[in-house]
């Protein structure tokens, strides 16, 4: 046991200083592409109209790199509903509506020592009945329609519904959006959104500046 402790001490602090300092590492192509001012591209996800990127549709493929450049900011999410009551204790339930697995992994990454969301008072709940918010990722797979409805119903009020990733927000290139079944209070774009973006959205949704 003590050897673990020594290893931990030797390794030093690995936890990010975010949100007080800017994120240490951002996978640039998961951030918003901005038009360089010249050049035309055709977006495979139909996310670009008149040089403006519909970030909810963007699948982070980077195929527009000839005319667009990612801005590198993790403040991507759109928060329509805020609940300040979650400021100290925020329990979230992860719901996979039909993902490729990467959104789930990025959300679960928040518990690793690097992001350590527990330090910010955010925790995973094992059942929606004990959660304040539900983080829905993936397209709306037919088989998950009923479970999603039930999960949202099971959440106590006040509650927040997150649509995480391009699939959940718009269906991306794979299928239908989850907004067909439930209304999303917070949307977190990216394919997949990187953990900083998700953490940022969680903090914003409880009123942190």
């Amino acid at each position: 046991m003590s050897s673990w402790m020594f290893r931990g001490l030797r390794k030093g602090r690995v936890t990010t200083a975010f949100p007080w300092k800017p994120p240490e590492s951002v996978p640039v192509w998961t951030t918003r592409p901005v038009w360089k001012g010249e050049g035309e591209v055709s977006c495979p996800a139909d996310a670009i109209k008149e040089h403006r990127v519909d970030i909810g549709r963007c699948i982070s493929c980077g195929y527009c790199s000839s005319a667009y450049e990612p801005n590198g900011s993790v403040d991507l999410s759109i928060v329509n509903g805020k609940e300040r009551i979650f400021a100290r204790s925020y329990h979230v339930y992860l719901f996979d509506a039909g993902t490729c697995g990467s959104c789930n992994l990025e959300i679960k990454s928040l518990t690793n020592p690097v992001y350590d969301m527990n330090r910010l008072g955010i925790f995973f709940a094992s059942t929606p009945k004990h959660a304040d918010a539900i983080l829905v990722s993936g397209i709306m797979a037919e088989g998950m329609r009923e479970p999603l409805k039930r999960a949202v119903e099971a959440l106590p009020e006040p509650r927040l519904v997150f649509a995480i990733g391009a699939c959940a927000i718009s269906g991306g290139i794979l299928g239908k959006a989850i907004t067909e079944v439930v209304d999303a209070d917070v949307i977190v774009p990216g394919c997949p959104p990187n953990p900083f973006t998700i953490l940022n959205a969680l903090l914003k949704s409880r009123g942190d500046s």
Binding site: S25, P27, V28, W29, T30, C61, S102, C191, P192
Partner: peptide
Amino acid sequence: RIVSARFGHRYFFGV
């Protein structure tokens, strides 16, 4: 993060 820094995406999407 090594992957992200080199390839621009953590899961090699679009690379």
